[in-house]
Design a protein around this nucleic acid. Structure first.
Length: 585
DNA sequence: GCCGTTTTCGGCCCGACTGTTTTCAGTCG
């Protein structure tokens, strides 16, 4: 089994144990183990298992090491099979219903004998759930509504789309007279590729008007909570948004807390405790003595003051950690050592290479795309229309590509735009790894992006070999969307990342970070290690229209999550350097 | 189940909201 498959099993064990009513710390140990595996490279795990050093990894003890080893070598785990067989699958499904957790599901199952979502719905309809101890009419209604809306509510949302909803809300909150500070926190602020819900943190002294403004925003379908310090709404799209209200002096703590991630917060709290302090959304206070953190923060007796997050981190002897890095993946150690990278920023980009025009499946012409790039202040724009095999995308024949090259040369020569246009192609990687144009054709171009657009269902080994063959082609400049994934719609094709990254480095080939908000491929989780080993990145919007160029913003997010600096990114370099790089091929 | 310059046993991050209670459990983030 691969590391991610093993991680999935561990996560599921955690969930099943929860439903069994197991010790919550035990269930957490399984979930923590799954995260540890996910953050490893596959060959790292292989080596640790081969050398029997798995137990040396923090978070993995005897029991987990044994289970991981068994799954790794046999793909099976008797413990898991038995556990799974002992629990009705319908109970697992019920965890997706808002308001239902392990305890309540257990009560429903044990006392009513309900084992499916459908059974639960009818138990609600005829009032049996409300009759249970600890339940009532409201719980019953809430469960019923939750079942009906399960699909929409459980859905995650693309970062780009969630941002489009959040931006005007933040602006609106900041414009309120009662509000001194407002930010969107959560996974949106961390730049995660998908967002589960929105979190708005607001510093205000008079909260009632702010809550009122928030819950009456256009698109609000339902108000799910409304209190002194918190309000929650659900938008028509199913997206949930929480508003958190804090006094100004607690803003930095609340912003940090609700930005997360959970893993990052756990580590920060442990770090605080090691210094005799207790960290929460309320503040940073001495851990010893009477009373809760909240009480002490309100008392203001010994609390550490922090006017912003920089001060909060400084109070724990850390440099400011950019939100994108707060995933509990080594950022705290790096901040302590003063080794945080200077992450790439949108303003560092001077152009991009993978863009389409109306010659293939784009919706704007070469001139329109160039004008849009110039308006963004870009020094250069690469045109990479589809190659002939992508018939569905009007892929260019050799004749049409030659004509486009001539057109681009003429455009550059005309001096009409300050932006220089590079001639390129997004050349299909055929199913055997050959490219869709011959060498003579490719030699006429400034650069070549190679991508898989067909025969997605090959085995991982075949797909990997296919892509590596394309990487080894001397005319290949960069590899497009490594897995072809479409977020929330389609899984990527299976590939061996380690082998592909090795091949790219060995052949001086760039791997693209496809910045389309639906792709964000190669995934940020691979970038840190890949870049450390010397892989060069290009952040490409894969724009199919002028507005698509702005998708580089999503790519910058993912690049930052992957710890990339501008040194790691080709299109952060000036025109002359890029010309040199292309000329050297 | 994991972990250890207090501990090999006894902890494990912390607090708000809701709905059900009449002081609190469960859920959520």
């Amino acid at each position: 089994m691969t590391k991610n498959e093993i991680a999935d099993v561990l996560t599921e064990i955690g969930t099943l144990l929860e439903l069994k009513g197991e010790n919550p710390f035990k269930t957490r140990a399984y979930q923590a183990g799954a995260r540890v595996l996910e953050s490893m490279e596959q060959d790292e795990l292989d080596t640790l298992i081969r050398e029997e050093r798995l137990k040396s990894v923090k978070g993995i003890g005897d029991a987990l090491a044994q289970k991981i080893g068994e799954l790794h070598s046999t793909g099976r785990l008797e413990f898991f099979d038995k556990l799974k067989a002992s629990i009705e699958p319908g109970l697992v499904e019920m965890l997706d219903v808002p308001g239902l957790g392990p305890k309540k599901i257990k009560a429903i199952h044990d006392q009513l004998g309900v084992t499916t979502i459908e059974g639960l719905a009818s138990a609600c309809t005829d009032g049996r759930v409300a009759a249970l101890a600890g339940f009532g009419e409201k719980s019953q209604e809430k469960i019923l509504a939750g079942i009906r809306n399960r699909e929409a509510y459980g859905k995650r949302h693309m970062w780009w789309e969630a941002g489009a909803i959040a931006t005007p809300i933040v602006a609106g909150l900041r414009a309120l007279p009662q509000v001194s500070q407002a930010e969107a926190a959560g996974s949106l602020r961390r730049g995660l590729e998908t967002v589960g819900d929105l979190d708005f943190i607001v510093a205000a002294v008079d909260v009632a008007p702010v809550v009122e403004w928030f819950v009456t925003q256009p698109g609000v379908q339902e108000i799910t909570a409304r209190g002194e310090t918190k309000a929650s709404v659900r938008f028509v799209s199913g997206l949930q948004a929480d508003l958190r209200l804090v006094p100004p002096e607690q803003f930095a703590f609340a912003l940090h807390h609700f930005t997360g991630s959970k893993d990052h917060n756990v580590l920060m709290r442990q770090r605080a405790l090691a210094r005799g302090l207790s960290l929460s959304e309320w503040g940073l206070v001495p851990a010893e003595g009477e009373g809760t953190a909240k009480a002490k923060a309100e008392g203001g007796a010994h609390g550490v003051k922090a006017k912003d997050e920089t001060a909060l981190f400084a109070a724990l002897d850390l440099r400011f950690i950019p939100p994108e890095l707060r995933e509990g993946l080594g950022e705290i150690e790096a901040a302590e050592a003063g080794e945080l990278p200077r992450l790439i920023e949108l303003a560092d980009l001077r152009g991009a290479f993978h863009n389409h025009t109306t010659a293939s499946d784009g919706r704007n012409t070469l001139v329109e795309m160039t004008a849009a790039a110039e308006a963004l202040g870009w020094e250069y724009l690469g045109i990479a229309d589809h190659s002939k095999s992508s018939v569905q995308a009007k892929g260019l024949s050799e004749e049409r590509l030659a004509a486009q090259v001539a057109e681009i040369h003429a455009l550059n020569a005309s001096g009409r735009f300050k932006t220089h246009v590079f001639t390129g192609t997004e050349c299909d990687i055929l199913s055997d790894g050959r490219l869709d144009y011959d060498d003579a054709m490719l030699a006429t171009l400034d650069y070549v992006v190679v991508s898989v657009h067909a025969a997605f269902t090959q085995s991982s080994a075949d797909m990997t070999a296919r892509i590596i063959r394309a990487i080894e082609n001397p005319y290949t400049t960069m590899l497009g969307h490594v897995t072809g994934r479409l977020l929330l719609r389609r899984e990527g094709y299976q590939v061996d990342f380690t082998q592909i990254i090795d091949a790219a480095i060995a052949n001086d080939v760039i791997i693209e970070l496809n910045a389309s908000p639906w792709r964000l491929d190669m995934d940020w989780r691979h970038w840190r290690k890949a870049a450390e080993r010397g892989l060069l990145c290009a952040i490409n919007p894969d724009a199919h229209e002028t507005s698509g160029l702005e998708h580089v913003r999503a790519g910058i997010n993912s690049a930052r999550k992957g710890w990339l600096t501008r040194e790691h990114v080709l299109n952060a370099r000036p025109l002359a350097e890029v010309k040199r790089a292309f000329g050297a091929r």
